[in-house]
Design a protein around this nucleic acid. Structure first.
Lengths: 344, 344
DNA sequence: TTGTAAGCGTTATCAC
DNA sequence: GTGATAACGCTTACAA
């Protein structure tokens, strides 16, 4: 690989001059030599060695990003996949690269710690945070730059970008109400998930805003699994008296909604006619389900861009934007799984 | 961040001695000083600066890996997501990290070129190759280390790992034959996809091996889209005379199989009773389709491990394993979409 | 057994 | 304007 010395020799100047030209210290190099240096650079095909540059400037130009958990076959995490792509692209645009790494789920800290202590990365992007996230706690404590996709303990002050799950579900429930639904059910996760709670809030707030009661018997909580959808619908249809059944169901994730669809098939209930259904994520294949699933799509592209924007603010120590937090609304995608309530 | 000098000062030795101890040049350091150095290291919390190490050794300990294409919302590429994870993990195990990057689909070469010329990475992993892949051509030409997940032009000599699509589909078709099927259809991609051709070969070979005719009227070719499944089934069911219809369909991807399922619904055909169906990939949600889709699962975990193993061989210049190619069989997952042919 | 010093490829501070 | 030269933090001959 050619070095700056080779260029200097070829151009008949010193390496300092070459460096000036390459870094556009244009004020102190004559037009003549500048042209000559560029000619030499072109001829030799020189590009500066990143490692040497990094050593000199005590930076790595690398942003660390870890998966939140091991993907399993058949599991849906297309969300993070898409996010990672947009993150990588935005990072490159800002002159960085993404270093992707993994960690044992029980104990992320040592991995983050090593990457910091060896100066491997300049910053981190973390995703899938929860209220009491140890990574946030650790990075704040170390005062190491990071931006999060997802919120955490509201008392912690750190830059984050997140999808406004509250607004999304609120919008979806509004749409259901608009269609004439009054008895709308919610299938949520247990209350330890911050993301889940925000989404649930959207349901509560929309109901209240419309003057509808928040009926606890219409709220089902379970794991983020297909099974939860089965359980919930079976409960609504076999335990509750017909007149108390919901005419619409808001599932907090597509995976749960899929369970509802499958249970409906078994119960002889037709989704999109007997009961409306809406999910969250726009997971792969949901558009091809029977019926196609109405859902909320996260603006992952924009999130990646915003995360990197916040990170650049942080790293360049430019006075931070007034808002270190960005809440982006998901996009409501109406599909055939929702319709007006049955008329009888 | 503490440096080797700080440790040397703390331990009362020279930086060379510290370096010896840290790199286990144990033959030339007394037990005494070694202990003293480690004590200092612990006390100060020192870890060697990776950039400086890399500069000194002219390596980056980074492996470049790019997505083959921009993921879209609702699109299935969980396959590569899972692969990336196992790749990252295997790389870390070997003392490397994954640098993930993106490139404009039309012209990958400049991006690869820059990463090489700036010494940003030590090697590449490429995925989703095709017969005449420009990346393979370029990297071979540059003699830059890389391993591929996926084959290419058989005349090019380079290390790769791949899923044995032929064996997978062969096994699936065998299973169908075992169930009693004789008229088995294939829905394939156009013939420009190497991967697609291997999978198609599996179908042909299985049919021939069983002494069954390869009937061109039972082979449908289309894009890797849900629509192709629709088109194929409609063709089989509305254009062909009933007695010529297939009793089983082998789709080359889950996405196409989903189209078949949906078209079947419209035609009043019951998958898993009137006709059997099998896909490829074990994409997210396919297990929850109605009926659950029989499919072939790629051993992505093992592929990641093998790719890194080959790469380490390459980078350490140890005499290469006799086999620079690894062909791993997918796992057949029978589900309710297949059954014995209707007895009418 | 340990220390000195050269050098990895840059950038930046000085002189000139 | 330009060119020596000293870092950046580490590894490794070679000297002591």
């Amino acid at each position: 690989m050619p070095t700056i010395k080779d260029v200097a020799k070829e151009a008949g100047v010193s390496i300092a001059t070459v460096s000036y030209v390459l870094n556009n210290k244009t004020n102190s190099v004559s037009e003549e030599t500048r042209i000559e240096v560029w000619r030499a650079v072109e001829k030799i095909g020189y590009m500066p060695n990143v490692t040497a540059r990094n050593l000199r400037s005590s930076r790595s130009r690398l942003i660390g990003y870890a998966w939140h958990e091991r993907p399993r076959n058949g599991y849906m995490n297309a969300v993070l996949d898409h996010f990672t792509y947009s993150l990588a692209q935005a990072a490159e645009h800002a002159g960085y690269h993404l270093l992707t790494f993994t960690y044992p789920h029980q104990d992320p800290i040592p991995v983050y710690d090593e990457l910091i202590r060896t100066s491997r990365v300049d910053a981190f992007v973390i995703a899938s945070t929860n209220e009491d996230d140890p990574r946030v706690r650790y990075l704040l404590d170390k005062a190491f730059p990071f931006v999060s996709f997802g919120r955490a303990n509201p008392e912690w002050d750190f830059p984050w970008v997140d999808v406004d799950g509250e607004a999304g579900v609120h919008q979806a429930v509004d749409a259901l109400i608009e269609l004439g639904h009054r008895r709308i059910a919610l299938i949520a996760w247990d209350q330890h998930s911050l993301t889940g709670n925000f989404r649930s809030d959207g349901y509560m707030n929309a109901m209240r805003a419309a003057g509808l009661p928040v009926d606890e018997t219409l709220i089902w909580r379970g794991e983020n699994q297909e099974q939860s959808g089965h359980d919930a619908l079976r409960h609504f249809w076999t335990v509750m008296p017909p007149e108390q059944r919901p005419t619409a169901i808001c599932a907090i994730s597509d995976l749960i909604a899929v369970g509802v669809i499958n249970e409906a098939e078994q119960l002889g209930v037709t989704i999109g006619r007997d009961v409306s259904l809406i999910g969250f994520d726009n997971a792969p294949l949901t558009q091809y389900l029977h019926p196609p699933l109405a859902t909320l799509e996260q603006p992952l592209e924009a999130i990646g861009v915003q995360v990197i924007a916040l990170l650049c603010d942080l790293l360049n120590k430019t006075p931070l934007d007034d808002q270190r937090h960005r809440l982006l609304p998901p996009r409501f995608i109406p599909r055939a799984s929702i319709a007006a309530p049955p008329t009888d």
